[in-house]
Design a protein around this nucleic acid. Structure first.
Length: 560
RNA sequence: GGCCCGGUGGUCAAGCGGCUAAGACACCGCCCUUUCACGGCGGUAACACGGGUUCGAUUCCCGUCCGGGUCACCA
């Protein structure tokens, strides 16, 4: 009967599983090489959570001399977003994630496919899935189901989106189970009738599991666990002949010879289904790695899965905020491998790709996204860059997200570079920038159009004192002075005005002075930079040049 | 609600039967210093709870509690 049924349902499928096996021979790879994949559905942007499994897959494959490929899981036409796949690939590439095989972007930014295990787009693999589905029907492990979605919905008395009460859940489960068992009882004649009438159908698995029995399973990250066997006749092939995730996963990862399936832990609950499928199909199960989810804090202070609406979920957010990809990658590494930071401290100059990624060092519990930590990682990375690349990167970012400022930077790259060179390059470089967006606040005052006096002088200083100090400065200022001479003059000015020139002496007897040379410097700083805090004043003045320094100081004098 | 996963400072985390329970970020203080940044030194702060097992539990087992995930012709 099963043979007849299989022909009835899939008259157009002439291929057999053996044909497929022949089409996808084992990969010729060295011992220990891992084959991993990233398998997103093209429904939108790359999620921060998606960067985790893809980074792990990429590292594991490339570290072992294996293959990392991209498979597009476009089995749900309803949710597909135009151009999402291209965007996905492009975004991943900016984070250093490149694929050896599968969907790849050509020079024009269009998708092309590479590799001998394709098609890499699931919507183009219908014949393959149907070949296996037919085989399962033939073997009595799957069957057609003509119950429509609408009928199924009626069975559910409650809306899934809503919070369900205890009894509702039970009623729901019982109703579904009863219906499922009833669906199994069909005759060939009934099937023929439905088919003749053109009724759509899905192919369901004939589950042989017992919910009360447990399957032992070892996850490479989570360790040993026991899960109940699957007893649910879940859908294999949807009514359009396209598989569900579960079925596509089993067939594709088998044929494409994936060795390690890396995915988020939200897949753990459906693992029993997959195990059952691999057994039914006679496939060897791959190794599984279920990665803990990234969380965020909600208003009530509870951890929540980072969802697409959240700040920092969309990878494009980081570009917008001005984070450099290296920082994000490194931050991800610190979360992924607990010994990464230690390694990095010992090897500060090596790229993270040199780090020996270790599955055993992966966390089993979900972590909270921490911008403080990201900023710290980022500051360190930027502080180690040379002035030229910082200038280029800040300019590129600003041109895209703050065009006016970007144009100002781009107008004179050498000038901008000299600014970013302040305090850079030594053993203890300044760490002022966590993002490119921080640049404007840090050094915008170098540009007249972004120069504003933000801080006022404290009340305790007499305006007359400040004015005469600034006037003296104007008289003695000489661009040719070296740093020491320049500061010696400031000290003299301070002393003449009744301010302590020596900080030690001032601290011993502060009441003997109107203030200190620190205050005098501050008068100048506010006049020249508009702020109480700034990088080294001598460097600032050297870069600003005589005219602008004197103009700003002059303007300040006039305003007092 | 069933099932699954998890629970060491505010965050990320070492630990894998015996430790004054590492380290990083954040925070606070001090030092350096003309401000800031950097750097140095120091500090506050943790094994969810209750039972076992054991000479001895953060570590092993059970229960409770808490948090998360999941229960589709979505992935």
């Amino acid at each position: 009967m099963s043979e007849i049924l299989a022909e009835l349902l899939f008259p157009h499928i002439k291929t057999l599983p053996a044909d497929m096996e022949a089409r996808y021979p084992a990969r010729d790879l060295p011992e220990g090489a891992k084959v991993t994949r990233f398998a997103p559905s093209p429904t939108g942007f790359v999620h921060f959570g998606g960067l985790f499994p893809s980074t792990v897959g990429e590292r594991l494959a490339h570290q072992s001399g294996g293959v990392f490929y991209l498979r597009i899981e476009d089995t749900d036409a309803k949710r597909e977003v135009e151009g999402a796949a291209e965007g996905l690939i492009r975004t991943l590439a900016t984070y250093g994630i490149h694929f050896d095989e599968g969907a790849i972007l050509d020079g024009e930014g269009k998708i092309s496919y590479q590799g001998a295990y394709g098609p890499y787009r699931q919507s183009e693999r219908a014949e393959i899935y149907q070949t296996y589905a037919k085989q399962l029907v033939r073997e009595g492990k799957a069957y057609p189901c003509f119950t429509t979605e609408e009928e199924l919905d009626e069975l559910s008395q409650v809306n899934k989106k809503e919070e369900l009460k205890n009894t509702d859940w039970q009623a729901e489960a019982e109703a579904r189970r009863a219906e499922m068992l009833a669906r199994r009882n069909f005759t060939i004649e009934e099937v023929e009738e439905h088919l003749k009438a053109g009724h759509p159908f899905v192919i369901r698995i004939l589950a042989d599991g017992d919910e009360d029995k447990k399957v032992k399973f070892t996850d490479l990250i989570k360790g040993n666990m026991e899960i109940p066997e699957n007893d649910e006749d879940f859908v294999l092939l949807k009514s359009d002949g396209i598989p569900t995730y579960h079925f596509a996963h089993a067939v594709d990862d088998h044929l494409m010879h994936t060795t390690h399936v890396i995915r988020g832990e939200e897949w753990l609950p459906s693992l029993a289904k997959h195990l059952q499928l691999f057994r039914y199909l006679g496939f060897r199960t791959p190794k599984y790695m279920h990665i803990a989810q990234i969380m965020r804090l909600d208003e009530a202070g509870n951890k929540k899965k980072l969802s697409k609406r959240d700040m920092g979920a969309n990878m494009d957010d980081y570009t917008r905020m001005g984070y450099c990809p290296e920082a994000v990658c490194e931050y991800v590494m610190t979360l992924l491998n607990s010994n990464y930071e230690e390694w990095h401290m010992q090897n500060p100059d090596k790229p993270y790709t040199d780090f020996p990624f270790n599955i055993k060092k992966m966390s089993t519990s979900g972590c909270l996204f921490d911008f403080d930590k990201l900023n710290d990682v980022s500051k360190n990375i930027i502080s180690r860059m040379d002035a030229k690349s910082v200038t280029e990167k800040v300019t590129a970012w600003a041109l895209a997200f703050e065009p006016d400022f970007g144009k100002a930077l781009a107008a004179d790259p050498a000038f901008a570079e000299s600014i970013f060179a302040i305090g850079r390059g030594g053993a203890k470089p300044r760490k002022d920038l966590a993002t490119w967006a921080d640049a404007k606040g840090y050094m915008g005052f170098f540009y007249d159009e972004y120069f504003t006096v933000e801080d006022a002088y404290p009340e305790k200083f007499a305006r007359d004192d400040i004015r005469s100090i600034l006037e003296k400065f104007t008289e003695t200022f000489d661009m040719a002075d070296d740093s020491n001479t320049w500061f010696a003059k400031i000290k003299d000015i301070a002393a003449d005005a009744g301010f302590a020139a020596d900080m030690k002496l001032y601290k011993q007897n502060p009441e003997q002075y109107k203030g200190s040379v620190a205050d005098v410097s501050m008068f100048l700083r506010v006049a020249v930079t508009g702020k109480m805090n700034s990088p080294d004043m001598y460097s600032v003045m050297q870069i600003l040049g005589r005219d602008r320094v004197l103009a700003r100081v002059g303007a300040m004098i006039n305003s007092l």
